[in-house]
């Protein structure tokens, strides 16, 4: 049971103020995520924290630059929300447990397994999927290099691999082959395209720098 009194301002070892101070220089996360329309309780006001669900609740997702508000049960994963109501089926579910990385998307530019994160947990962060990688008709250099090197066979794991390799190049414009392997070390490709994926990513890195 929620107890409103317990969220108050009693003595404590580490105060909230300490946390705010210690957060300087780190990424601050906006607590008031858009989905909690009624989450207006002020800090220390004694108002209970808002509970959403288990019925469908409004969840606003910013995906590929577009904001959409969906009604989702809190248990819906990001992968399910993308593939279902948002119709973005380029993101694939392979194992549904974070073990194959086929479902890789970016949250604020960082790769995550979208099967292992709840849609309601995204908050104001931006999601980028394989559908949002190309600039209009112009493929991302990693996508173009994947075609050039035949870094795909059945293509099911490909969107996830492309997202990982493209993310790597954001941080490491000129990676070594071993860094590419490390970046894709969570991915499974049963067709065995790893050698071509590594070669393609190195080519894409050169293309971006040219």
């Amino acid at each position: 049971m929620l107890n409103p009194d317990d969220s108050g301002s009693r003595e404590r070892g580490i105060s909230r103020r300490t946390f705010l101070r210690s957060a300087v220089g780190t990424t601050m996360v906006d607590a008031a995520s858009g989905f909690l329309d009624d989450a207006k309780a002020a800090e220390g006001s004694g108002v209970p924290v808002a509970v959403a669900g288990p019925e469908p609740v409004p969840v606003t997702l910013k995906v590929n630059g577009v904001e959409r508000t969906l009604r989702l049960e809190p248990r819906v994963t990001l992968a399910e929300a993308l593939r279902g109501p948002l119709g973005l089926t380029g993101t694939k579910i392979g194992c549904n447990r974070g073990a194959c990385s086929a479902c890789t998307v970016w949250i604020d530019g960082v790769t995550v397994c979208s099967c292992m994160i709840l849609a309601i947990d995204i908050g104001a962060r931006s999601v980028t999927t394989i559908e949002g990688l190309a600039q209009g008709e112009t493929l991302h250099p990693v996508q173009a290099a994947f075609i050039e090197h035949d870094a795909l066979q059945c293509g099911y794991c490909t969107p996830g691999l492309v997202m990982s390799c493209a993310a790597l190049l954001r941080n490491r414009p000129d990676p070594a082959a071993e860094e590419v392997r490390a970046a894709i070390s969570g991915h499974y490709c049963r067709c065995g395209t790893y050698p071509h994926v590594v070669a393609a990513t190195l080519t894409a890195a050169k293309a971006r720098q040219a």
Binding site: T89, Q143, I147, P159
Partner: peptide
């Protein structure tokens, strides 16, 4: 020769049965 459905696969546009 480049794969004829390569573009569809690298953009996620190709439809698998699960899609």
């Amino acid at each position: 020769t480049a794969r004829q459905n390569g573009r569809a696969k690298v953009t996620g546009a190709i439809r698998f049965t699960v899609d």
